[in-house]
């Protein structure tokens, strides 16, 4: 497949949104995964000059396992991308070593706990 058609395929699978979620073709790791993929789905699309979402739906119906595998191979680098994580309101840094800040228990809940503790036992 030509680079432009690989880009079209990436964008149909991961179209992004108007609020800043990038299209699949704008994530280099997605395009690398797609270019390096030996998926038979690429072969099925390869002879076409153009294709649209409805064409992919038909191929998905006829080759569900292979299609899912291709989609998963693109979803993984896409949602690992710092650009995508940040566009979704998350951060690009991994969980460690920074960890996260998290709110303490609301002070008002201490009174609730005291009230619960005064309940008759609920175990048998």
């Amino acid at each position: 497949m030509t680079p432009s058609r690989l880009g079209l395929l990436a964008d149909l699978i991961l179209p992004g949104d108007a609020a800043g979620l990038p299209r699949g073709s704008l994530i280099p790791e997605v395009m690398l995964a797609l270019a390096g993929s030996a998926s038979p789905i690429k072969g099925l699309l390869g002879e076409r000059f153009d294709f649209a979402e409805k064409d992919l739906r038909l191929i998905e119906q006829s080759h569900p396992a292979e299609f899912r595998e291709l989609v998963m191979s693109l979803i993984k680098p896409y949602y690992e991308s710092g650009k995508v994580l940040e566009a979704m309101g998350w951060r690009s840094a991994p969980p460690q070593p920074l960890g996260h800040r998290i709110a303490a228990m609301d002070e008002a809940l201490a009174a609730e706990l005291a009230r619960i503790a005064e309940r008759k036992r609920i175990w048998r």
Partner: peptide, 26 residues
């Protein structure tokens, strides 16, 4: 995690799952 949520959506690709993630994540 975001990727885990994305991998469990049905349909898995196209506008709909990305809109769903927008609604649900966080």
């Amino acid at each position: 995690a975001l990727l885990v949520q994305a991998s469990r959506l049905s349909p898995l690709w196209g506008y709909q799952p990305q809109a769903q993630l927008r609604e649900e994540f966080l």
